[in-house]
C-alpha cells in the first residue's frame, strides 16, 4: 500500500485509469448533448414565445397562443426554480414508479440535463432576440419580409451571435453540474470518483483526480470558446471593390476571411 499522497494518486490512476477516462467521456457527452439539445429547446421555446399575435386574429388563435405561452412559462419557471439534482430524482423515479419506464441511465441523464438547460436557454435566447435592434425587424417588414423570414434571416442570426458567450457559459456549467446526475447512477466523473474511492476508502486522492479532470475540461473549453468568439468577431476588414463612382475605390484592405453573404 502506498504511504504518500502521490503514491495513492498514481495507484488509483493505474488501477482506474480507463474508468476515469470513461467517466470523462460520459461527462463530456452529457454536457455536450445537454447544451446542444437544450439550446434547440430554448430556441424553439423563445421563437414560439415571440410569435406576434395580432389583435385581429381569431379568438381560438389568441387563446391558443396564450395557453401555450402560459405552459412554456410554467416549464421555464419550474425548471429554473428547482435544483437539477431534485429534477433528476423526480423524473427518474417518477417515470419508473408511475409510468413503468425504466430509463437507461445515460439516456435519462441527457434527457434531464437537456430540459433543464432548455429552460435557461429559452430565457437566454429571448434576451438575444430582444437585444437585436427593433428597427431592423421593421426594415425587414418594410421590404415585405414575413415575421418568419425576418426572424430567420435577420433577427436570429444576430441573436445567436450575441448570446454565444452565454451559450458557452451554459456548456461550462453543464460540464460541472452534470456531476449531480450521479444520483441516477450514470457513470459520469463524479460517480466514477465515488467508485474509485470506495475500494480503498481514499476519498481525498480519488476526488483530487476528479477535480483535476474537471478543471482541465472547463479551463480548456473556456479558452476554446474565447478563441471561437474572437474568430467570429473577425472579418472587420473588407475589400473595397474597383469602381468608377468612388474615389476611394483603389484602396484595398485585405479581409481576414470571407465576408459571408447571408
Amino acid at each position: 500500500m502506498p504511504t504518500t499522497f502521490w503514491g495513492w494518486v498514481s495507484l488509483l490512476l493505474e488501477k482506474y485509469g480507463p474508468l476515469f477516462w470513461n467517466g470523462t467521456l460520459y461527462t463530456m457527452l452529457i454536457a455536450i448533448s445537454g447544451t446542444v439539445i437544450g439550446f434547440i429547446i430554448g430556441l424553439l421555446v423563445a421563437i414560439v414565445r415571440t410569435i406576434p399575435v395580432s389583435p385581429k386574429a381569431s379568438i381560438v388563435k389568441r387563446w391558443g397562443m396564450k395557453l401555450i405561452s402560459f405552459l412554456l412559462n410554467v416549464y421555464i419557471e419550474v425548471f429554473r426554480g428547482t435544483p437539477m439534482i431534485v429534477q433528476a430524482m423526480v423524473i427518474y423515479y417518477g417515470a419508473m414508479m408511475y409510468l413503468g419506464l425504466r430509463m437507461q441511465a445515460l439516456g435519462a441523464a441527457i434527457f434531464i440535463i437537456s430540459i433543464n438547460t432548455g429552460a435557461y436557454m429559452a430565457e437566454i435566447v429571448r434576451g438575444g432576440i430582444i437585444s437585436v435592434d427593433k428597427g431592423q425587424k421593421e426594415a425587414a417588414h418594410a421590404i415585405g419580409m414575413t415575421h418568419w423570414q425576418s426572424m430567420l434571416h435577420v433577427v436570429l442570426p444576430q441573436a445567436v451571435r450575441n448570446i454565444m458567450p452565454s451559450i458557452g457559459n451554459e456548456f461550462v456549467v453543464n460540464i460541472k453540474d452534470s456531476s449531480v446526475l450521479n444520483v441516477i447512477s450514470v457513470s459520469e466523473l463524479f460517480f466514477i470518483g465515488k467508485s474509485a474511492a470506495g475500494t480503498y476508502a481514499r476519498y481525498f486522492e480519488a476526488f483530487f483526480i476528479i477535480a483535476a479532470i474537471y478543471f482541465v475540461l472547463t479551463f480548456t473549453v473556456t479558452r476554446l470558446l474565447r478563441l471561437l468568439e474572437k474568430k467570429m468577431d473577425g472579418g472587420r476588414n473588407y475589400t473595397i471593390c474597383g469602381s468608377q463612382s468612388d474615389s476611394e475605390a483603389t484602396i484595398t484592405i485585405h479581409p481576414e476571411g470571407d465576408v459571408p453573404n447571408d
Binding site: A139, A142, I143, G144, M145
Partner: peptide
Amino acid sequence: AEYHSKVGMVFQSFNLFANMSVLANCTAG
C-alpha cells in the same frame, strides 16, 4: 408582402441588417 414591395421605406436610423454585407442587404428582400 406585395404591398410592402411597392411601398418602400427609408428610416431615420438606417436599420440596415447588421448581419449581412452591403450587397446582401440589397438582395435579401
